[in-house]
């Protein structure tokens, strides 16, 4: 099985891969380092790598001066809320399609996927007007609804591919063992599907957290999540790089960590099961 390789080749690959990996990671690393610098040293030329006066002041300022926590909790509310709502709608649907397929199941799945490919800008105007009339602009409910709808096809698809892997035999065995439909779902299907549901949840939180078309266009202040909050730093005046970095780190860190843990599921979720 193992390819015979010399240690020298292995070291060569190691150096090359680490080099490229660090270059790709550099912007994030640089943001990380900058977030601990005093503003003056953040824009210093030549750049300071490690020899600066480490400080947590930026994090404190970002929190105290700009409603960071409000935007953070907006992000949490909209990402988690939309994901849970999505799962609530998607689990029964995926269950039905995986275990009681009909001739049309495939068409329904494909159609659901096709709604995901509708460019947001094509429905921006009506959604904006509807939301304006329903007073959903800049509200949590509005953002949750939009995020749920745009991610629902992905949630259903991911769950469907996971449910598909649960052998029908086992559900039938439960039925033969006297389990009612409810008992079958509670005692057999759900425990077996937990890993799949968990990774679906994770991927969806990531996608919802980073969504930056609807959140930018449908929120202003009250419900604005971190995507919109960070965008407000783009105003040209002043170079507050250290603070920008601190705010950025806080915005991306939770998702980065979640993303690292869900690498494998990510591939499957984002390719609709076409690559596993």
């Amino acid at each position: 099985m193992a390819r015979a390789i010399s240690t020298r080749r292995k070291i060569g690959f190691t150096i090359l891969a680490w080099g490229i990996g660090l270059v790709i990671f550099f912007p994030i690393l640089w943001t990380f380092l900058t977030s601990f610098k005093p503003e003056g040293q953040a824009i210093a030329i030549p750049p300071r790598f490690f020899d600066f006066d480490w400080t947590l002041a930026n994090y404190e300022t970002v929190q105290s001066r700009s409603n960071y926590f409000r935007h953070f909790s907006n992000s949490v509310i909209s990402a988690v809320g939309s994901t849970l709502l999505g799962l609530l709608i998607a689990i029964p649907a995926a269950w039905a399609m995986a275990f009681s397929p009909t001739k049309r199941t495939k068409d329904v799945l494909m159609w659901m996927l096709s709604t995901k490919m509708l460019p947001a800008v094509g429905v921006l105007v009506p959604i904006y007007l509807i939301f304006r009339d329903l007073r959903l602009l800049d509200t949590h409910l509005g953002i949750i609804v939009v995020l749920t709808m745009i991610n629902l096809p992905i949630i259903i698809w991911m769950l469907f591919t996971y449910f598909k892997e649960i052998p029908v035999d086992i559900l039938e065995a439960a039925r033969m063992d006297g389990a009612s439909l409810r008992q079958e779902v509670v005692h057999v299907l759900t425990p077996m599907a937990v890993p799949g549901i968990a990774s679906t949840l994770l991927l969806n939180i990531i996608l919802a957290w980073n969504e930056a078309f609807w959140t930018l266009n449908l929120t202003t202040t009250n419900a604005a999540p971190l995507t919109a909050f960070i965008a407000s730093y783009s105003s040209p005046e002043g170079l507050f790089w250290a603070k920008l970095s601190a705010a950025s780190m806080m915005a991306i860190a939770p998702i980065l960590i979640m993303g690292w843990f869900s690498q494998k599921q990510l591939v499957r979720g984002l390719t609709f099961g076409a690559v596993k």
Partner: peptide
């Protein structure tokens, strides 16, 4: 009658044990 109410037991080719 639903399978659950027929009071029959079944052994499957794949055994169909509950893995969890």
């Amino acid at each position: 009658t639903a399978p659950a109410q027929r009071k029959l037991s079944m052994v499957f080719q794949s055994y169909a044990l509950y893995p969890h």
